[in-house]
Nucleic acid binder design. Structure first.
Lengths: 251, 251
DNA sequence: AAATCCATTTCGTGC
DNA sequence: GCACGAAGTGGATTT
């Protein structure tokens, strides 16, 4: 990996190095005192202050201050980025649909760094909602004793049901899974599926609704009762990477 | 603003500079080839590759690759960060409630940069949902001819109604506002408020439901009809900072 | 491109 | 602290 760092560069140096780095698709980091203007879906203005600007090869453009996880301003993947000198070094990043612009006007550039980095390795993730769902489909006894899975991700015209099946009595049952503490929105989601099923199958009985999550908020608990749904606890760690512990964790 | 940049530092130099920079609450940027382990609410593993690690004074810890806006791994504000040498330079960032850990093991550190930046300037924002709501409360004729606002942000036990009022006929009306194209979730939100009001006021008629947004998705349009709600278009730019153009924009 | 939903959502606000 | 909902949500997946 090659890199180049310029300390206290003047505006013309910045312009030259930056524009070439953009052309070559480099990762660029500029740290300096600047003001930031954003206009697009909304607008914002940030007066002069010290910030770190990152331009990625894929077009992402980030303006970071010394705090917060999220950039204070940004542009999405695919954005263009021009630089020029106008009474100082200026960066202009533009994106389309929707049309949005960020203009960064530097009072001073402290450092300008260019990196030629690439990273084709993809991240392996565990413990997502999909992991829990897959596990429950394979081990339906954890949903309910005698539960039979009919369909994983059953599409309906109001969204996809996580798991659809029949309980031990043969009643249609809709299962909604949340990876963490469930709020009212989760109950409403389940309700939407249950009522849609009811409308579409007026000949059959109202399906059961089961909400599976580690816990419920108070509001969600009230709604689960009101709509006659069932809550079943999913131990937070049932989806551990260590498959051998699942059974014991769950019982 | 002071800064210090070390090129191709060895693990011991990294450890020394990094730990002092953490102690002093500096903004730190490390670029190098590393693997990243995350364990917490979920887990992930990222094999060796070139990445940029940022540690902010407020404890935020970001691992960026050459693509995507979001860091591939991160820790929130308030996280601790230790560094040590173990067959190479290692960063360990820990946070609590929930307990989470990121470990970054460097194969090679290309650059280690430390910045003393501070930015007390706050960003000014325009064009949020709140801006639209405030405008409609002041100009209720844009909700409906003869509309009377009774309450802005009316709290209920199923959430806060954006605007509650009476239409020209004196019928209770619930208004839900979306800043952008509204989907089924927006209709369900409105439905929740309307049905809750109905339950709480069985003596009065069912309140009207009005959904205000720039446009509706197809699914949302069907549901608006099904539930007997009304959709009213909010021109995307009605909340422009230039107040003088609002009336013309809107008509 | 549009729609839908998960996310280590993050972020703000109110209780 | 928790709960609830907005966000320039981001991002993946499917249509």
């Amino acid at each position: 990996m090659k890199y180049k760092i310029e300390k206290d560069p003047d505006p013309n140096q910045c312009e030259e190095i930056f524009s070439e780095a953009v052309r070559r698709g480099r990762m660029i980091v500029v740290v300096g005192r600047c003001s930031v203007d954003y206009e697009g879906r909304t607008q914002s203005y940030l007066p002069d202050g010290d910030r770190m600007i990152v331009r990625k090869p894929d077009g992402n453009f980030l303006v970071h201050t010394d705090e917060n996880r999220k950039p204070v301003n940004w542009q999405p993947e695919g954005s263009s980025c021009k630089s020029f000198v106008d009474d100082g070094f200026v960066l202009l990043s533009e994106s389309s649909s929707p049309d949005e612009v960020i203009e960064v006007r530097f009072d001073t550039v402290y450092t300008l760094s260019v990196y030629s980095i690439s990273d084709d390795r993809s991240v392996e993730k565990y413990g997502t909602e999909k992991n829990i769902q897959d596990y429950l489909v394979e081990n339906p006894e954890y949903i309910q004793d005698g539960f039979r899975v009919i369909e994983d991700e059953r599409d309906t015209d109001v969204g996809a049901i996580d798991i659809f099946g029949y309980d031990a009595d043969g009643s249609p049952t809709i299962v909604e899974i949340k990876r963490r503490r469930a709020g009212p929105d989760a109950v409403q989601q389940l309700r939407r599926y249950v009522e849609n099923f009811e409308e579409k199958h007026e000949d059959t009985e109202r399906p059961n609704g089961i909400l599976m999550a580690p816990s419920l908020t108070e509001g969600a608990e009230g709604q689960v009762g009101r709509y006659g749904f069932e809550f079943r606890e999913v131990p937070e760690k049932m989806y551990s990477t260590d498959q051998s512990t699942k059974l014991t964790d769950f019982t």
